[in-house]
C-alpha cells in the first residue's frame, strides 16, 4: 500500500471544518517481534497499516495482549518496529519528541517534583523562561481542575488527580499529537467518567490529533471519531469503524442516543463473534 502524505479519507468527516484532512500519522506495514523468556519469538503486531488524519480522535480497541500499546509506543518513538515504519507528517519517526506527547496508565509523574514542577518540566526543557513557564503552567493546572494543588507532591494526590497532572504535563509542551495509553484504566468507574468528560472538553478547544488506546468499548465510542478494532495475538487490524456522532458530545444526551447504543452493541457483538481474520495462526 502506497500511502501518500496528502491522502484523504473517502468518507466525509461530518464535524470537521471544511478543507482536506491531511495525514498526521502514517503507520506502514508495521510488525513487531518480541523474545519471550523461553527464548521463543512472539509476534505482537503483524502487518499493521493505518493513517490518522490531522485533528482526528482515534481509538485503538482490543483485548489485553493484542499489542495495542506497542503500536502506540512505536508512534511515540519509544520502540522501533521490527518491520515497517511509522511517519509523522511524512517524516520517519526515529525517536521520541515533543511533537508527540504520551499519557500513560501508570501516570509516570516525577515523584521528586511538585505538581507545578512536573507540569513545568516540558516548557523549561524547551527553553521557556521560568516566570513565563510558571504562568502558563498555573493556567493549565487550573484548566485540568487542580487549582490549589500546585505545590503538592504526586504521592499526596489521588489516582484521578495524578492523571490530570500527567495530562497537564503533556499539554504544557504543546504536542501536535496526544498518545494516550489506557490513561483511565487504573481509575475507578466514577473518576473515569469524569475524566472522560473533562478530556473531551479540553480536546474541543484545539482539537489536537489523539491516539487513544483502550479496552473499553463505551469509552472508545464515546470519545472517538474512529475506532480501530484489533485482534488478539498476533495483533492485526480487524476493522475500522467511523463513529458518526455529533460533537461536541455530552454524556447525558449520548447515552440515550440510539446511534451510540447501536455502535456499542455492534462492536461488542463483533468481539463476541470470536476470531476472524488470521487468528487461526
Amino acid at each position: 500500500m502506497n500511502v501518500l502524505p496528502s491522502r484523504t479519507e473517502a468518507k466525509a468527516q461530518p464535524v470537521r471544518a471544511p478543507g482536506q484532512a491531511t495525514a498526521m500519522i502514517e503507520i506502514d506495514h508495521v510488525s513487531q517481534m518480541f523474545q519471550t523468556s523461553a527464548r521463543q519469538d512472539h509476534l505482537a503486531l503483524s502487518d499493521i497499516s493505518l493513517t490518522i488524519e490531522d485533528g482526528a480522535f482515534v481509538s485503538i480497541l482490543g483485548p489485553s495482549g493484542c499489542g495495542k500499546s506497542t503500536l502506540l509506543y512505536i508512534v511515540g518513538g519509544f520502540v522501533s518496529p521490527t518491520q515497517g515504519s511509522a511517519r509523522m507528517k511524512g517524516r520517519a519517526i526515529t525517536g521520541p519528541g515533543p511533537d508527540r506527547g504520551p499519557v500513560f496508565q501508570e501516570f509516570a509523574l516525577f515523584p521528586w517534583k511538585t505538581v507545578l514542577g512536573n507540569v513545568m518540566y516540558g516548557p523549561r526543557q524547551q527553553g521557556v523562561k521560568a516566570a513565563e513557564a510558571e504562568a502558563q503552567c498555573r493556567a493549565l493546572i487550573e484548566m485540568v481542575g487542580l487549582k490549589g494543588f500546585e505545590d503538592f507532591y504526586p504521592k499526596e494526590l489521588s489516582g484521578g488527580m495524578k492523571q490530570r497532572v500527567a495530562l497537564a504535563r503533556t499539554l504544557a509542551y504543546h504536542p501536535e499529537v496526544l498518545l494516550m495509553d489506557e490513561p483511565f484504566g487504573a481509575l475507578d468507574a466514577h473518576t473515569r467518567t469524569r475524566l472522560q468528560n473533562d478530556l473531551l472538553n479540553i480536546w474541543e478547544r484545539d482539537r489536537k490529533t489523539v491516539l487513544f488506546v483502550t479496552h473499553s468499548v463505551e469509552e472508545a465510542v464515546f470519545l472517538s471519531d474512529k475506532v480501530v478494532m484489533m485482534t488478539r495475538s498476533p495483533g492485526r487490524i480487524r476493522e475500522i469503524i467511523d463513529i458518526d456522532l455529533p460533537r461536541p458530545r455530552h454524556r447525558s444526551e449520548l447515552l440515550l442516543d440510539p446511534r451510540y447504543q447501536k455502535y456499542v452493541v455492534d462492536i461488542e457483538r463483533m468481539f463476541d463473534d470470536g476470531p476472524v481474520q488470521g487468528s487461526a495462526l
Binding site: 511515540g76 519509544f78 525517536g95 521520541p96 519528541g97 515533543p98 508527540r100 506527547g101 504520551p102 500513560f104 509516570a108 516525577f110 518540566y121 516540558g122 526543557q125 524547551q126 504535563r169 503533556t170 509542551y173 504536542p175
Partner: peptide, 8 residues
C-alpha cells in the same frame, strides 16, 4: 519516556 517525549 515521559522525559524524552518532553524534549530531554
Amino acid at each position: 519516556w515521559s522525559a524524552l517525549a518532553a524534549g530531554t
